[in-house]
Design a protein around this nucleic acid. Structure first.
Lengths: 333, 333
DNA sequence: TTGTACGCGTTATCAA
DNA sequence: TTGATAACGCGTACAA
């Protein structure tokens, strides 16, 4: 069937060990034999069998990505960056999408063990950690992204609170005072941090309860409906600006605002969070807080690889700085 | 370190083979010993090492997904369906995104071989097949999706021509005659098929050259700019409807139309192709041809698994039927 | 119903 | 610089 190292050895007239050494390249092999070996490799179209190599070396050259879902368009972008980064280091990507389910996440941890992945990039779907014992005890190098937790793993994330703060501040600095903040699943720490950022901005700028509103919801239709009813208030009382805790939400908000016969940013200014691929193609292009996924991916994978290959044992929490991207969804009033 | 089958055997007071048999479940093992074995397994938190199993059995329980990119929002949706389907069969997913590059695709084929994946779901990035010899000679069960090719592999796809035909027909039946069709990369067969569908619709309904326009472009800014200049024509001559060969393009077209001060569907009706997740949240919600990715994923993975596990050797070309999804982007005139 | 022995394809150790 | 050999963890043919 497909050629093994023995076939190569026979064809090149050497032993398996020599072939292995020539291929590994870490032990000297005579130029001449080396040439013959590579010729044989080419001729037989030989590729080492990873399973065998893995069994012997205890390394699979494989990284696992554990992500919550792939629906919010933020994730495909992140996935892309991560996958490309992993490729650079010559590793293969095992993909595990949890569909926002703890059970599936747990299965991913088992998969990590049984497939002996060399490392894990983990973006948890929930703050509720009681199923993560599996992961910790698996003792596989792991980097957590987009969360900052004390699970004994290094973390790479943005500063959610200051991001939300500065985004809402931007609205305020453009003259808005009646502002609604739409938050996602508040059981998640990063969402609470974003909420805290909003509240702090209101406090710092003397905006009080009646003017600042907080809305909550995770489903698109919730966002849409709550936003619609908000738009029905009479103009003097109505909000002039709003903050979406993710760009995906902003999409639903745009729908609701337009449907209500109001214009962006003429009547309502909108700011988002994440800077998804489509943000600049929204109508009008969305002003939003940039989530630096390229950076996050780069740093996280680099950290992970160093942990794997150099045995570096770090637990650092790395915060990637970011900034707002001004487009056309905010009006100065 | 981590427990092996020998540890389990020792703890249960039996031999490795008995443990193996109990775990495989295809050979009778006495109830009592079985119980002791499972207890030991649980206690030691034992999971079989896949690399070893793979080496022995020549099966990795692994499927590889080779996709062109992850930018067009159509792909994340497809990826999701595929991944979930794969999970159902207890396989793990190896992800290879080619970033629209033949070179990277070629590397994916090599990966397939070296990691001994059991099967491949392949959505080619190009029609130019001269790098695919690697794939064919690898002799790994493969299913091609979204293309219908005679490479010796089964294919699962929609009928692109009739899809485009019926979508343009929908526009015509709503009274439109001055129509622009915006096509993507015409070097790709499925895009040429969609183009052919458009042309046939025009022919069948007696719409001639001046009325029907064809525009081409792959980059978002091309779509945007060409669309903008199209909008500058004076009203009597201007198109009243347009067809986007992908919803992603429709996003750019929406931008251009709005930017030009025209309304959808008041001035311009738009139909898309794919029915991406966001199509119903566009403003107005996009009428589009549904690309049945759930079905495609289901059929493709099922076909692949049957090929792997039952040795079924099929080369069938499966066409999944579909339909238009009427939303609010088309006006009857 | 169970145990012994072997081999899957590789790399590492040791001796030459 | 090279070759012979053992071992990685597992599943199975064969013997008991």
């Amino acid at each position: 069937m497909t050629a093994t190292i023995r076939d190569v050895a026979k064809k090149a007239g050497v032993s398996c060990s020599t072939v292995s050494r020539a291929l590994m390249g870490n032990v000297p092999v005579k130029e001449n034999t080396k040439r013959r070996i590579f010729e044989a490799v080419k001729e037989l179209n030989y590729i080492p069998v990873q399973s065998a190599r893995a069994l012997k070396m205890g390394r699979t050259k494989t990284l696992q990505l554990i992500l919550p879902n792939n629906l919010n368009p933020f994730y495909p972008k992140l996935l892309n960056c991560l996958n490309n980064e992993i490729k650079k280091y010559g590793y293969a990507t095992f993909l595990s999408v949890s569909n926002d389910s703890k059970e599936e996440e747990k299965m991913s941890f088992q998969m990590a063990r049984s497939f002996s992945v060399d490392g894990i990039i983990y973006l948890p779907t929930t703050d509720d950690c009681n199923h993560m014992g599996e992961l910790v005890s698996a003792n596989i190098p792991t980097v957590i992204i987009n969360r900052v937790w004390d699970l004994g793993f290094p973390c790479v994330s943005i500063d959610n609170q200051s991001g939300a703060y500065r985004t809402v501040e931007y609205l305020i600095q453009n003259g808005h005072r009646r502002i609604a903040c739409f938050l996602g699943d508040i059981s998640l720490q990063h969402m609470r941090e974003r909420e805290a950022g909003c509240r702090k901005a209101f406090r710092d700028y003397g905006i009080r309860e009646g003017e600042a509103r907080f809305l909550y919801g995770t489903q698109t239709y919730e966002v849409y409906e709550k936003m619609c009813s908000l738009m029905k208030e009479k103009k003097e009382k109505r909000i002039t600006g709003c903050f979406a805790s993710s760009d995906w939400m902003a999409v639903g908000m745009y729908s609701a605002i337009m449907k209500s016969g109001l214009s962006i940013p003429g009547d309502i200014s909108v700011v988002g969070f994440d800077d998804i691929e489509d943000a600049r193609f929204m109508i009008p292009p969305l002003t939003t807080w940039h989530h630096p996924v390229e950076q996050i991916a780069k740093v996280a994978v680099d950290l992970l690889i160093r942990q794997i290959e150099k045995g570096e044992d770090t637990k650092e929490k790395i915060i990637i700085p970011s900034k707002i991207v001004e487009r056309e969804s905010v009006r100065r009033i």
